[in-house]
Amino acid sequence: MKNVMSNKTAIILYVLPSLLLVLFLIYIPIALTGYYGLMDWSGVGQMKFIGLENYKKLIHDKLFWESTWHSVLLALFSVLSLIGYLIVSLILASKIKGGNLFRKIYIIPMLMSSVAIAQLWIKIFDPMNGLINSLLSMFGIKETPLWLADPDMALYSVFIPIVWQYAGFYIIIMYAALINVPQELIEAARIDGANAFQIAYKIKVPLISGVLKVLVILAVVGSLKYFDLIYVMTGGGPGHATEVIASYMYKEAFGKFNFGYGSAIGFGLLILSMGATWMIQKMLRVNQE
């Protein structure tokens, strides 16, 4: 009986195509990124082997660590926001009237491309005509904040649209997971006198913990390598106040023609992501036991 599920041919048939694609189209670039990281290369012309020079520079590069800190902050924010999304998903999936409609609407911003979202939020944050400051001045607040232009606020300001943009992504997955929770278990708990909160906390959430764990990893890794909106909205500025690892890497590799150093940053990011994932898995496994 076990034989069926350890059928070698089937396993190879199922796994190999994907594995080959990934090895070929992702691992070769990963290996090459590591290799370029050992070079002094502008991306044009001759490469020069310089060993670990780029990595040594990286360790002492204040800007790199600053960008890393910003990326880590984004990761923390994203993970925290998961709690909010979970609550929303629990409400929407709890068969309240109109839940399905609300869910559909909530996910709509996710359909928009980053180009549109960036423009929308630049307009919302505009210090003079923007939505937020117009509202604030309507309530009589004179000294309205500068948002993206204020180095102390820019980073947090730019987090808001990012977290908002991804809300749909997480909600749609959590929702699908919650909908899959067997109704019988919930009924049984209800008959035992459990209220909605207890059912959510004791039954639904543990049952979708597998999905939640994956989402935490996706949120952290996705945040660490995040690029799009930040690059369009602030370009990493003002004065690197919103620089993240990926934008820093892009600027070095494509803007400044330091392709070797840019690759080293990319490889550093990869290692950081691996470390973070390993840690999350450790932590969540302990939690579950």
Binding site: K2, M5, S6, N7, K8, A10, I11, Y14, V15, S18, L19, V22, L23, L25, I26, Y27, I28, P29, I30, L32, T33, G43, I217, L218, V221, L224, K225, F227, I245, A246, M249, Y250, A253, F254, F259, G262, S263, G266, F267, L269, L270, S273, M274, T277
Partner: peptide
């Protein structure tokens, strides 16, 4: 299914998610 190297293969796929897009362009 039951087989060896499951962990390795899973790790390979997970790490593949971590590469930043702009690192891949020139090699690809």
């Amino acid at each position: 299914m039951e087989w060896k190297f499951k962990g390795v293969v899973l790790a390979l796929f997970m790490i593949a998610y971590m590469i930043p897009l702009h690192s891949t362009l020139i090699p690809l």
